[in-house]
């Protein structure tokens, strides 16, 4: 149903329909006498258009943690991918073990174990890190690191697929020019693998933005936890979680635009006509968003 709405009307109209549905729900909620719950739209609109400092803080934490954790994930992913493809057996064992463990257990369990578990057993307490003007609290530090390490295990497979997609002739050409393994990787193979890696990497970051909501388990007041607590206080559960969803939607939408820009940049040398930059990968975000939903005609 939603899919067909997107086909027929396009993004803007889909958004419009979404707003109308929400308004209808609000009206329905207000008018149905039997419901004990009274919808107070003010909570919804205020938290979107007049966000208080708690929401702004939560937004900052969600975005900040996502970016840093994703960066850690990419770096770890590159190393783990190279480890998996290494000639040296111990590298392969370590990389495979890492990927096996972190892809095979739930993130929530990893968060609980490495934060509460280690501390309770007296094995490791996460420190407070002073980074310039801000203090990074132990739970935030743990959240960033565990999210990053978890992400690295997923990135490893993506990076590996990207590296394998590069023509082996490229490695041979680089080697025969006297490049070392490191130079061949960093100058020749990884830049080409990036083209293959970046679309799924974008999806990973989209996921990351939403997955940070699990950090509420560590009492981090990121976006979700902020709204959750506010909902607990005001009992405006419906309005506030709806607003929370809109905030996440805003973040992922902005990221979608950024992602398509990045993809365009990395498609260097792949299109036959650089001036127009045609080709499916170079379409604007809107065009790609639409084509995602477009029916296959004929």
């Amino acid at each position: 149903m939603t899919a067909s709405l997107f086909n027929r009307f396009g993004t803007r109209r889909a958004l419009l329909v979404g707003c109308l549905v929400f308004a209808a729900l609000v009206v329905a909620g207000c008018s149905s006498g039997q419901a004990a719950y009274t919808i107070r739209p003010g909570f919804f609109w205020d938290s979107l258009f007049k966000p208080d400092s708690a929401i702004i803080n939560g937004l900052g934490l969600t975005v900040g943690i996502s970016v840093i954790a994703q960066l850690i994930g990419v770096v770890l992913g590159v190393f783990a991918a190279m480890g998996r493809m290494a000639k040296f057996l111990p590298f392969r064992i370590v990389a495979n073990f890492y990927i096996w463990v972190f892809r095979g257990t739930p993130l929530l369990v990893q968060l609980s174990f490495f934060f509460y578990g280690l501390a309770t057993a007296g094995l490791f307490k996460w420190p407070t890190v002073v980074a310039g003007p801000i203090d990074i609290l132990p739970e935030v530090l743990a959240g960033i690191v565990i999210l990053g390490v978890n992400e690295g295990a997923y990135m490893a497979e993506i990076v590996r697929a990207g590296i394998l997609a590069v023509d082996p002739g490229q490695t041979e050409a680089a080697k025969s020019l006297g490049m070392t393994y490191g130079q061949t990787m960093s100058r020749i193979v990884l830049p080409q693998a990036a083209r293959v890696i970046i679309p799924p990497l974008g999806n990973e970051f989209n996921n990351m933005l939403k997955t940070t909501s699990l950090l509420s388990a560590l009492s981090i007041f990121e976006l979700y936890n902020t709204f959750s607590v506010a909902a607990g206080h005001s009992y405006a559960t419906f309005e506030l979680f709806a607003a929370c969803a809109v905030w996440y939607l805003l973040l992922t939408t902005i990221w979608g635009v950024v992602q398509s820009r990045i993809e365009k940049k990395f498609s260097r040398g792949t299109t036959t006509n650089t001036s127009s930059g045609a080709g499916p990968r170079n379409k604007g975000f809107a065009a790609r968003f639409m084509s995602l939903r477009a029916p296959i005609e004929q």
Binding site: D167, G169, Q170, E172, A173, A174, K175, S176, L177, G178, I188, P191, Q192, R268, G269, T270
Partner: peptide, 17 residues
């Protein structure tokens, strides 16, 4: 050692980026 030895391949293998 390979720095002293140039190689030209059947399929060119130019760096496309």
């Amino acid at each position: 050692q390979r720095q002293e030895i140039g190689m030209v391949f059947q399929r060119f293998n130019l760096f496309p980026h």
